[in-house]
Simulated assay, not measured.
Amino acid sequence: MPPRPVPLRRPCAAALAGAALAALLTAAGPAAASGDGTVGTAFARAAADFGVPRDLLVAIGYGETRLDDHDGLPSLAGGYGVMHLVDTPAHRTLRTAAEETGLPAADLRRDTGANIRGAAAVLRAEADRLGLDAADRADPAAWYTAVARYGGAGDDTTARLYADTVYALLRTGIHAVLDDGTTVDVDPSAVTPELGTYADAGPAPGSEDYPPAHWAPAHPENYAAGRTEPISVVVIHVTQGSYAGSIAWFQDPAAEVSAHYVVRSADGDVTQMVRDADTAWHARDGNAYSIGIEHEGWVDDAAWFTDTMYRSSAALTRHLTDRYGIPRDRRHILGHAEVPGNDHTDPGPLWDWDFYMSLVTGDTPAA
């Protein structure tokens, strides 16, 4: 997870495959709605009050956080709650939620019921701007553009990546078990979304440095061109947020952080955001000599660290160690927390270093 900028020193960074996704659709998280309702009740009420399809609202929250509020702590991109409400110069869903609901920002950040209600209000406001009438709003397929905009991406390709994730969840279905024992379910539904203006947004081009990856460049203000030291270390991070959300954040000039690569939890999809030859801001004093790999998820939830993610990331690390002559050992393949001069804890104690290194060294086949 990339740290925030520090004075006088540039800082650090922090269409899912249906079969891979299906294996991940039971998740636990500590979110609990306030008042007399469960999280499931909060989704139903917010959906009814704002005319947003309930299953769509759940899919957005599940795609962002797996319905885990992370005890009110913000994500890498500054998003709060199960619905990841954000207030940055480029993405202001938290502020819009406060304006539309009249609820205080503090409640929207920490109260799950308020957070869900705020997200529904943001989506309805976007639907109104798009001119969706009552019949449109009843059809989840008509909400694609509103969902894409909710994600806050700075370009159409990343916005489509975000929306495609949500609609993949609708097609596959969701069964989330929360810490209070209640469940939130979405039955599988064959939804074919109306892509609207995003129909022409094709997939990201391929990476020149690592052909299996997509190429979605970070904003130029979030990294430095060139390097001052040879590449000698690979640094493992956890995004503290979603895959699409992290990509969008590194494309936001307000971030002032980045990583070279981001790996998705469900299917191991990889996106490169900074060329190997350039210096991503992900590890403070270690930036100059390292390559940073972000992994979708949260340090306190091992469910994000899937077998597919481990294998995909290990294949990338094997490629990097081959290309740059980096020894395949724990002195040269480090967690963010192990880089000198850093105060972060990722990838945390739930990251399986023994398994990961066995994949990197070839003791366990990575493919």
Score class of each variant (00 low, 15 high):
residue 8 L to S: 13
residue 12 C to W: 05
residue 14 A to N: 12
residue 20 A to F: 05
residue 28 A to Q: 11
residue 31 A to S: 12
residue 32 A to F: 05
residue 35 G to Y: 06
residue 38 T to G: 15
residue 40 G to T: 11
residue 40 G to Y: 07
residue 41 T to N: 14
residue 43 F to K: 07
residue 45 R to C: 00
residue 46 A to V: 05
residue 52 V to N: 04
residue 55 D to G: 03
residue 57 L to E: 06
residue 58 V to K: 09
residue 66 R to T: 04
residue 69 D to M: 10
residue 81 G to T: 11
residue 82 V to C: 06
residue 86 V to I: 15
residue 86 V to R: 04
residue 89 P to E: 12
residue 93 T to I: 10
residue 94 L to A: 03
residue 94 L to G: 09
residue 98 A to W: 02
residue 110 R to N: 13
residue 112 T to W: 02
residue 115 N to L: 04
residue 120 A to P: 10
residue 122 V to Q: 03
residue 124 R to D: 11
residue 127 A to K: 02
residue 133 D to E: 09
residue 137 R to Q: 12
residue 142 A to R: 15
residue 144 Y to L: 04
residue 145 T to K: 00
residue 148 A to T: 03
residue 151 G to M: 08
residue 155 D to E: 15
residue 163 A to Y: 03
residue 164 D to P: 02
residue 165 T to P: 00
residue 165 T to M: 12
residue 166 V to D: 03
residue 168 A to E: 14
residue 168 A to C: 10
residue 169 L to F: 12
residue 169 L to I: 02
residue 172 T to H: 09
residue 173 G to S: 08
residue 174 I to P: 06
residue 174 I to C: 03
residue 184 V to L: 12
residue 185 D to H: 11
residue 187 D to G: 10
residue 190 A to Q: 14
residue 197 T to N: 02
residue 197 T to F: 10
residue 213 A to Y: 03
residue 215 W to D: 08
residue 219 H to N: 15
residue 232 S to I: 01
residue 233 V to K: 14
residue 236 I to N: 05
residue 240 Q to C: 07
residue 254 A to N: 13
residue 267 D to A: 11
residue 274 V to K: 01
residue 291 I to H: 01
residue 293 I to G: 01
residue 298 W to T: 11
residue 302 A to F: 05
residue 305 F to E: 00
residue 308 T to F: 00
residue 314 A to L: 08
residue 316 L to I: 10
residue 318 R to M: 05
residue 319 H to Q: 12
residue 325 G to A: 04
residue 331 R to L: 14
residue 333 I to F: 11
residue 333 I to V: 15
residue 334 L to A: 08
residue 337 A to E: 11
residue 341 G to F: 10
residue 344 H to G: 08
residue 345 T to V: 15
residue 348 G to W: 04
residue 349 P to V: 12
residue 358 S to I: 00
residue 366 A to P: 01
